[in-house]
Amino acid sequence: MGNHDWIWGFTGGLLIGLAGAVFLLMNGRIMGASGIIGGLIDRTGWSNWAERVAFLVGLIAVPPLLVPLYRVVDTHITSNWAVIVIGGLLVGLGTRWANGCTSGHGVCGISRLSLRGIVATVFYIVAGGLTLALLRHVLGVI
């Protein structure tokens, strides 16, 4: 499948953008994964909990239906539990402080040329690139 990865990537991207378009033009909400789940966790989003839960049900239930159909999916996640815990904590903390992640800032923010969205995206990509460069190629840890 290697050479066609970009076609699958682009097609999947269109679906992600379509999801954001539906959420905006129907529900009047900006689609951000970290905000939808985070609002349920810290109680700031309890006033519209049902809408958030419905979104999460769709998000969690659809991927396993698609997996056997046409792509063999393995997340290939690391088995180093310490890396997983540190990574998870940083992702949870960081996305809530920044008030957005790849979907909120990256997709919804950049598509309306929001300064915040662009700045956030540049910073998390650069931070991610430097982290991999340092930990994989300099220290050889991950």
């Binding site: 890396v83 998870g88 940083l90 949870g92 960081g94 998390y124």
Partner: peptide
Amino acid sequence: GSVLFGIGWALV
């Protein structure tokens, strides 16, 4: 927040 997120994102 974005820097912390980027580090965690890259780790896993």
